[in-house]
Amino acid sequence: MTKSEIRIPRFDAYERVMHWMAALSFLYATLTGLAIWSPKLYWLAGVFGGGFVIRGTHPWSGVLFSAVIGWMFARWAKTMGLDSDDKVWLTKMDKYITHQHGALPESGRFNAGQKMLFWSQVVTALLLFASGIVMWFPEWMPRSLRLIAIAMHPLAAIGSISGIIVHIYMGTAAVPHSMRAMLRGWVVPEWARFHHPKWYRQWRDSTNIR
């Protein structure tokens, strides 16, 4: 068999379901959240059944998203730790952006950029969850907490959404075949060796497929 017919498993079914649950709940929470964020974006509320409806559903989508982030943390936290190569990678991120891959240290299963996205999403999800609970039940929450939450929630959301915009770009146009990895679970060896050489060698050494 030729190399491009070999399929390296990248994301198993659990990880794919996990990722897309996070993605769908995030998308829903983002669009409904933007509707309540600014009166100028309130038209988005109409898409999802009106303001009164999304006031009820937005918090639940946030709870689901937070729960999936918790699942992701349990599954990926160890893998997402930065090793010494990753730290060098981060200082040379401009080389990654300008496609000078030769100048970068080799990446493992996830590169340092992906790891930073993971950690930033964990942090913003925590902030969003904590402030979201406060904003969900204003009648039960002390005023001082509500005043903090009302500023913290959108601020964390700005960080989170900006990160995900970049993530969506990376996963679609910027890195061909990565979408297939997340939808169907596998990549070809050429892709693995180019983007994640350390991870590729681990796979190669653990199998006799060449």
Partner: peptide, 13 residues
């Protein structure tokens, strides 16, 4: 993201 794609294109091995 859009202009990055326009300038550098995809990361294709």
């Amino acid at each position: 993201a859009f202009f990055h794609f326009v300038i550098y294109g995809p990361q294709d091995p």
